[in-house]
Structure formats: C-alpha cells, structure tokens
Amino acid sequence: MTEGGIFPALIGTFLLSTGAILFALPLGVLAAIYLKEYAGAKKWVRIIRIGINNLAGVPSVVFGLFGLAIFVKLFGFGVSVLSGSLTLGILILPVIIRASEEAIDSVPSSFKEASFALGATKWQTIRKVVLPTALPGILTGAILSLGRAAGETAPILFTAATFYTRHLPESPFREVMALPYHIYALMTEGTKPEFQVPIAYGTALVLLLLVFAVNFIAIIIRSRMRRKRKW
C-alpha cells in the first residue's frame, strides 16, 4: 500500500468528478429551464423546489447507499467509475439546478422582450438569448460543484472506490482509486502505519490544492463575468 504513488487515485478522482459533471450539468440546466420558464407557479412546482432544496441537505453517505442500491445493484453497473459518477452527479444536481436558476433569473426581461418582439419563439429565445447570457453563472456553479464532487468520500465508498490498485480503469465499468478514499484507506487499513500516515497527509495536501485550484478558476470566471456585465 505504500508503493506506487497516488497517480491512479488522482486520475480516478478526475474521472469521477468529470463524469459527475457530464451527467449533472445537462440535467441540471434543463431542470432549471423547465422550472423557470415553463413550470409557472403551480403548487406541485413549489413541492419540487422544496424537494430540490432538501436534496442539497441530505448527508452524502445516504447518497452513497442510494447509489449502491440503484446503480451498483439494480442497474447492475457494479462498483465502477460509472456508478460513482452517477452517484456524485445526483449529489451535486441540486447545487447545479439552483445556480442555473439564479443565472437564468439574472437575465434581464428586456432581452427576452426584444427577442419576442422580433418574432422569436420561446425556445429560440431561451436557446439564443437566455442561455448564452446565463452561461457564465451556470459555469461558475458547475465548477464549484466539480470541486465538491472531487472531495467527497462517502458517495464513492460503496459505488466506485477501490482500496488499492496499480492500474487505471480500462472501462467505465471498472472500479478506481480516488484521492479522498485513498486517505481514508491509508489511515484505517494496512499494516505499516508509520509509513502510511505521512502518505495520507501528502495525499490530503494534493487533494486540498486540487479543490483550491478548481474553486480559484470559478472565482476568476465569476469576476470576469461581473466586469464584462454592463446591463
């Protein structure tokens, strides 16, 4: 366990969190468009909103169990990159929906009016005016949740992470090492704690730097967006 470095774990974390974004971003943006532009103010829409907000507060280990039951067992994806990505995707979905809703909200209604007055349909207006204007806000939310997904341990505990491997996964149906779980494994398992603990600290530092770098990118995008914004 003290051999081989953290390269597989680093790649594993990268695969899991990009997979999560690939799944959650389109779904989250579509959900936000639906809620903001089509759903109106009906009662069940309010209930959906409450559901989304509560989903953001569910402990992440519960998502892990959910992923184990649904993706690993029911869908038969096994303990794999795919199961882990989907589980992390569900975890960050409410954050992405809320960020996208806020970004869509901040598009001035005068832009939409101008588009309608030229004879555009609602969908054309959303696609060509609302989404491009809201994009920086949506991206900021997505990148912040990327950082969140990279650092989570509990959701991948039963769905994706493996204890130790020297290999990278050959397909999305293979299990992977991941940085947060690697730290957990180093601290709780194994037979040579005197070597493992320093490696765990080192891994923690790498993970922190990674999350910090991701959040820093989000902050840069947000401040550039504020500077460019003139309406």
Partner: peptide, 14 residues
C-alpha cells in the same frame, strides 16, 4: 416579424 418594436430603454443583446 411584420410589426417591429423599439423599446423605451435601448435593449441590445449582449
């Protein structure tokens, strides 16, 4: 399309 409109406040797209 046949009846265009110009608004009170200039509202070009970004």
């Amino acid at each position: 399309k046949r009846v265009g409109m110009v608004f009170q406040k200039p509202n070009p797209f970004p």
